[in-house]
């Protein structure tokens, strides 16, 4: 297993004592596409970021096991983490506008990410950057390589981010709402692109999203989180057979084109979902 998480808890200090944001999460990821779905505050991003030790400094993390490719993340030094972050496990975030360096061209950023993990010349890195831009289906790699982030559209910026993350040839990609800031037409293209890259390179992918239908179309397996806990794990094809009332409620309250409802179903939150006694 590329990723093993057992009984993970993440707490933050608050005036009323530690507040648990993630409570006893266990999951594994192999060479597959795993989706983590939940509403804001469900702990989905914290769970994934704990793998890279990218949590706010005040976060208190406990787990029976938190491992990436057999490496114990809880015991890993900063130096060890630097050899994992970016190189072996990449992170793609929601908005390329805030993740790209505004004063470097797209090509320079991809080349930098390439050279950081390999000993090559600047020219070779530039060649590699152009090749990566072509791989993320940019029609005119040379032009985009010389463009600054503000000159790129949202979809183009996200392709550049993906090219950058792919440069060190990572084994795991964590994508945190990678398409939420994009138009539906662009979203579909970016997801197809990620799917293609992941399957061609035999990578593991963790896709974090609030969009349950989207994730279940794209991933092999889906983990549904609520209030810091995993309430249900599904084979993506089995979404229609979801059993947990929270998962079913999330699906029912979505307006759709195919099934008009005069009044939308709302979600009645059962306190029992908080502690898993249902």
């Amino acid at each position: 297993m590329k990723v093993e998480i057992a009984n993970l808890s993440i707490a933050f200090p608050s005036p009323r004592g530690p507040s648990l944001a993630v409570r006893g999460v266990s999951l594994t990821v192999g060479s597959e596409k795993l989706g983590i779905v939940g509403e804001s505050g469900s702990g989905k991003s914290l769970t994934a970021r704990s793998l890279l030790k990218l949590l706010p400094p005040e976060a208190r993390v406990r787990a029976d096991r938190l491992a990436f490719d057999g490496i114990d993340i809880l015991q890993a030094t900063e130096r060890q983490m630097r050899s994992i972050r970016g190189k072996r496990a990449g992170l793609i975030m929601q908005d390329p506008k805030f993740s790209l360096n505004p004063v470097m061209t797209a090509g320079e950023q991809i080349a930098e990410s390439w050279r950081l993990h390999r000993k090559t010349s600047k020219r070779e890195a530039r060649e590699a950057a152009l090749d990566l831009l072509a791989q993320v289906q940019i029609r005119d790699p040379a032009r985009v390589a010389d463009a600054y982030p503000h000159e790129l559209s949202g979809g183009m910026g996200q392709r550049v981010m993906i090219a950058m993350m792919m440069a060190p040839d990572p084994e795991l990609l964590i994508a945190d709402e990678p398409t939420s800031a994009l138009d539906a037409t662009v979203q579909a293209e970016i997801l197809r692109l990620m799917e293609d890259l992941v399957s061609r390179r035999g990578m593991s992918l963790i896709l974090i999203s609030h969009d349950l239908p989207l994730v279940s179309h794209f991933c092999d397996r889906v983990v549904v989180m609520y209030a810091g806990r995993v309430v249900e794990e599904l084979n993506a094809a089995g979404l229609a057979r979801a059993e947990h009332p929270y998962t079913r409620g999330l699906l029912a309250c979505l307006p759709t084109l195919s099934h008009p409802q005069a009044r939308l179903t709302t979600l009645t939150r059962d306190p029992a979902w908080m502690d898993g006694s249902n």
Binding site: E39, L212, G249, L250, C253, L254, L264, T266, L267
Partner: peptide, 14 residues
């Protein structure tokens, strides 16, 4: 908004 909250706000607007 989260989808569960979206449903409540849309019902309110109706």
């Amino acid at each position: 908004l989260d989808v569960s909250v979206q449903a409540e706000v849309l019902n309110l607007l109706s």
